[in-house]
C-alpha cells in the first residue's frame, strides 16, 4: 500500500509541550526527527435497534507522535536542496529504538505554510524510511511521511504566540496534505489507543528463580559449566540492575516474588532509594555537561559570527 492516507496525527500533550518549548527556547530556527507509531484503530459503535446494522466498525489509520529529537539547527539531516542523508539521520537519532515517523521544522516570524525545502525533505524522507503499521490486518508498512510545522506570527502578538500544523506527505500528488493534530489524553475518547498499547520497560528480564529451576532440570549438564554460565549470567544481570539502581544486589530481587514478598517492603524501598540516587547523580551529571555544551555552543556562535562578519 503505497499511498496510505492517515486519518489524523496524534501527539501526547507533554510531547507537544516540549516540542513547542524546544522551538521557542532555541536561538534560531530548528528542525528534527519525530518518532512514534502508526496503528490501525478499530472503533465499534453498537446501537440498540435494527439488528441488521447493529454494529459498524470503522478502521482508522492514525499516526501517534511519542517523542522527538531536535537537531538545534536547520539543514541538519538533509542538504540545502532538501535531499535526506540517511547517515545523518542515523547519527541524529542515536540508536533510538523508536520508529521514525517523520520530521518537524520550527521557524519564527514566517508564514505557516510548508516551504520549498520542507516539501522536498518530506518527499525525500518518506521515500527512504518506512515503519510498520501496528494492529494491521495483514502486515503492512507505511512511509515516514508526517511533518509538523511550528511557526510564530509575522508580527509580535501578546496572546497568539505560536502556531502548529501537521501534514502528511502524499507521494501520489507530491503534496503535503494538512491533517488534524489531536492531543492524546486519558479518558474514554482515547480508549482505542489502549488496544495498540505496547509496554516499553527498560527493566531487564532477569532469570533469578527460574534459572535455579532450569539448572535442576538439566541434570546431565556439566556442573562446572553450568555454574560458569550461571556466574556469567549473574554478572550480566548485576550490570543491568546497576544501570538502574547502583549497588542493589540482583539476588535480592528473588525475594520480590513468592512467599517472602510480603515481608520485603524494606527491600523494595532500598531499591527505589538507590534508583533515586542514581537518577539524581545522573541529573547533576547532565547539568554539568549541559553547562559545558552551552559554553561550547556560545563559542561556536562567536566563531560563526566572525566568519559571517556579524558584529555584536
Amino acid at each position: 500500500m503505497e499511498d496510505l492516507s492517515l486519518e489524523k496525527i496524534e501527539i501526547q500533550g507533554p510531547t507537544l509541550a516540549s516540542l513547542i518549548q524546544r522551538a521557542s527556547s532555541s536561538p534560531c530556527d530548528v528542525d528534527g526527527l519525530l518518532f512514534g507509531q502508526i496503528h490501525r484503530i478499530v472503533s465499534t459503535t453498537l446501537s440498540d435497534d435494527s439488528p441488521a446494522t447493529s454494529s459498524s466498525s470503522t478502521d482508522q489509520i492514525v499516526a501517534t507522535v511519542t517523542s522527538f529529537i531536535s537537531s538545534g539547527k536547520t539543514v541538519s539531516f538533509y542538504d540545502p536542496l532538501g535531499r535526506v542523508d540517511s547517515l545523518r539521520v542515523d547519527s541524529l537519532r542515536v540508536n533510538s529504538p523508536d520508529h521514525l515517523l517523520g520530521w518537524f521544522s520550527a521557524r519564527r516570524t514566517s508564514p505557516n505554510r510548508p516551504s520549498m525545502r520542507e516539501l522536498t525533505v518530506s518527499s525525500s524522507l518518506s521515500s527512504r524510511f518506512q515503519l510498520p503499521i501496528e494492529n494491521s490486518v495483514n502486515p503492512n508498512s507505511a512511509s515516514s511521511s508526517v511533518f509538523i510545522l511550528l511557526t510564530t506570527p509575522l508580527t509580535d502578538q501578546l496572546i497568539h504566540t505560536h502556531e502548529y500544523r501537521a501534514y502528511q506527505f502524499k507521494p501520489l500528488n507530491r503534496r503535503l496534505e494538512p491533517r488534524s493534530l489531536g492531543i492524546v489524553n486519558i479518558g474514554p475518547a482515547f480508549r482505542g489507543h489502549y488496544g495498540s498499547f505496547n509496554p516499553k520497560s527498560g527493566f531487564p528480564e532477569l532469570l533469578c528463580e527460574v534459572s535455579s529451576g532450569s539448572s535442576a532440570m538439566n541434570e546431565d549438564r556439566d556442573d562446572e559449566g553450568s555454574s560458569l554460565s550461571g556466574k556469567k549470567q549473574a554478572v550480566k544481570d548485576q550490570k543491568e540492575v546497576d544501570a538502574l539502581a547502583d549497588g542493589f544486589q540482583v539476588g535480592s530481587l528473588k525475594r520480590l516474588v513468592g512467599v517472602e514478598a510480603a515481608s520485603f517492603t524494606g527491600g523494595i524501598e532500598e531499591m527505589y532509594e538507590r534508583m533515586l540516587a542514581k537518577v539524581e547523580s545522573l541529573a547533576s551529571e547532565v547539568e554539568k555537561s549541559s553547562a559545558k555544551v552551552l559554553e561550547l555552543d556560545n563559542h561556536n556562535r562567536k566563531l560563526r559570527y566572525r566568519v559571517a562578519r556579524i558584529e555584536r
Partner: peptide, 23 residues
Amino acid sequence: NSEYPASPPDFIFGPDDEDFMPC
C-alpha cells in the same frame, strides 16, 4: 538563518501556489 548565515535561504511561496514545487 542568522545563526547559520552561510547556509542558502529557503523560500515560502504564496498561499495559492501550493502546487509550485520548483525543487
